[in-house]
């Protein structure tokens, strides 16, 4: 017996896991790995911004902290890759706690909170670009040494399955939260803070829990990125690109819905790739597609693809009943 909401998660995961049986193209796996990494980062964003309603413009800070923690521990101290992963996730959670404590305790909400997160991300980008520990502007290279112990896999499908395992875990955790008291509190805080307080919800604690879990998830995505590409620099790790990816995917897929980020990431990048294959010579054409998709979603389906599907399903079933 599986609980409410888990069946779609299992089905989607199995579907992606089965792709190596029918597809053998490396570019497909490159694409899927990147999308899964983005989906994981976006799931972190979704927990805080979608379910909790605290919109962040700077989730790259957690992505970067994860990526740099993992690569610094490995290159400077020779720590095992899996241990570095654990440390990186912990660092992401801690960073979330600190940023959350500073901004939520001061009562920052909405666009003020969004701007503060952006400022933190930019600050870290500048620091990472200047510091020697992070390799400065040259960035950090992980030594190529494929093997399970180093969390490096020469086979792309294998790495895809690893990334998929992470995404699956994040989906299960998010669904578990949604079904729980903490999830209800988080939604209550999103909908109306004062009403939540009156019902005994400790708003600050709920937000802090959410942002540290969110930071942990997005940090894990950063680790996956560096384990796959074996290179990181400040522009990638703390760049605005991943902040935007992390918030765009849930927006398009379905903000606050468990499968929203994954669906959104696949839709956006799927469309981007298709356009690129048609109009490969035009640089940035996929970004234009992103923009169009975003405008269409905001104008016609403000609750994202999943929200739209749900609405259609409701309408259909109510027609059936009538």
């Amino acid at each position: 017996m599986i609980g409410r909401g888990y069946l779609p998660i299992i089905l989607v995961t199995l579907l992606i896991a089965a792709t190596p049986l029918v597809i053998s193209s490396n570019s497909f796996f490159n694409f899927t790995v990147l999308v899964l990494i983005i989906a994981l980062a976006a799931q972190g964003w979704n927990l805080l911004g979608g379910i909790g309603g605290q919109t962040s413009f700077g989730h790259s800070m957690f992505f970067g902290i994860g990526a740099y923690t993992a690569s610094m521990l490995q290159t400077h101290l020779g720590v095992n890759a899996w241990l570095s992963l654990v440390a990186a996730i912990a660092a992401g959670a801690l960073a979330g706690l600190i940023v959350g404590f500073l901004s939520f305790r001061a009562g920052l909400r909405g666009s003020y909170f969004a701007l503060v997160t952006l400022a933190f991300a930019e600050l870290l980008r500048v620091l990472a670009n200047a510091s020697e520990l992070t390799g400065g502007a040259a960035g950090l290279l992980l030594k190529l040494d494929p093997g399970f112990a180093n969390m490096q896999f020469s086979s792309r499908p294998t790495f895809m399955l690893l990334a998929l395992a992470f995404v699956f875990a994040s989906l299960v955790i998010t669904q578990k939260i949604v079904n729980s008291r903490f999830g209800a509190h988080l939604v209550a805080v999103r909908e109306n803070e004062d009403a939540a307080k009156a019902l005994g919800v400790d708003v600050l604690t709920v937000k802090l829990k959410a942002i540290s879990l969110s930071g942990a998830m997005t940090a894990a995505a950063g680790v996956l990125y560096v384990q796959y590409f074996l290179y990181i620099d400040a522009g990638i790790a703390f760049g605005i690109w991943i902040s935007i990816e992390a918030l765009l995917a849930p927006m398009v897929g379905g903000r606050g819905m468990v499968l929203g980020p994954l669906i959104g990431a696949f839709t956006l990048h799927g469309l981007g790739e298709i356009t690129k294959s048609f109009a490969g010579r035009v640089p940035g054409i996929d970004l234009i597609v992103f923009a169009i998709v975003l405008i269409v979603v905001i104008a016609f389906a403000s609750s994202g693809i999943l929200g739209l599907l749900k609405k259609l399903a409701d309408r259909f079933s109510s027609k059936e009943g009538a």
Binding site: V187, A188, E191, N192, A198
Partner: peptide, 8 residues
């Protein structure tokens, strides 16, 4: 002034 969680 009623404060429902409007989305729920």
């Amino acid at each position: 002034i009623v404060q429902p969680f409007a989305g729920l």
